[in-house]
Design a protein around this nucleic acid. Structure first.
Lengths: 144, 144
DNA sequence: TGTGGACCCTACAGCGGCTGTAGGTTCAAG
DNA sequence: CTTGAACCTACAGCCGCTGTAGGGTCCACA
């Protein structure tokens, strides 16, 4: 049925490593495929599709638990898509908050670097600011 | 000399956990402090300063290896600050590239969510886009 | 049909940066 | 002197892989 891929054939489409595929099987987000008489894995096209789904989701930053849920949903096309939607929205919120935090860090780093005029460590703003948080913009980089 | 803090006193200033301080000592970025007769750690003010430096650097996203180097530099104030500068610049480049990547992800997630009109999974754009990378903007989220 | 080498197998350790747990000891207030 | 909070070490676990060791299998070509 369909084709017959070895584990080494799948990465050629999706760019992920062989060990990663075995890892995905181990944690149960890729199904255990058929085996040859010599115990080697043999996949078909649907395995490739599933792996592509997983890799794409990872590229968008979804954690494996969320992907597990998204795959479960993808397997039940007749159900409502609220859950898929809310997983994606949660991921979007997460991405937005990371961007906000990184932009604060960027501002602080730029200020630090701009104020350093390249003399000795003793006068170096980079070291000085790191040593003294109170020189930072208020709440520029909250602990969280 | 100076004061005499227990390990539990340090976190009150810096907000980091007791185990984390012990971990920093284990990996050699915090010095081994004196011990009481009963083998408990006793710190002085300089330990607190050093921990604050480390925590602040972590908040700015510096990896521990970079912090190790920054601390070494901070201990030699007569030397030129080129290295400190270039570590900070490298960190800035790193932060910028993470921002760029996250902004691409954000755009893709927003598009995905906007196109989903809340029906069945079968028609759900979130699931569909995840299953088919070619529906993404070109190079929207490169593998790296 | 034999053989060589590319591929595959399992099991487990390691990455970064902590965090949590178990099981025991010490300190200091009352 | 007693209590209980804080301390100690040692080690496992988190995420998402990646790498290594020490084997076994597959298949194209001679």
């Amino acid at each position: 049925m369909t084709a017959d891929y070895s584990i080494g054939d799948l990465p050629r489409e999706t760019g992920c490593k062989v060990q990663t595929i075995r890892y995905y099987e181990e944690i149960g987000i890729m199904p255990s495929p058929a085996r040859t008489a010599g115990n080697q894995r043999r996949y078909d096209r649907r395995h490739g599709d599933r792996l592509a789904f997983i890799r794409h989701s990872r590229e968008l930053g979804f954690p494996l638990d969320a992907i597990r849920e998204l795959l479960r949903l993808a397997d039940h096309p007749e159900q409502p898509c609220d859950t898929a939607d809310s997983i994606a929205r949660a991921q979007l919120r997460h991405v937005k908050s990371r961007i906000a935090r990184l932009q604060a860090l960027k501002a602080e780093l730029e200020r630090m670097i701009a104020e350093c005029d390249g003399g000795q460590i003793a006068d170096c703003k980079v070291i000085e600011v790191l040593a003294d948080h109170s020189q930072c913009l208020a709440n520029a980089h909250p602990k969280a």
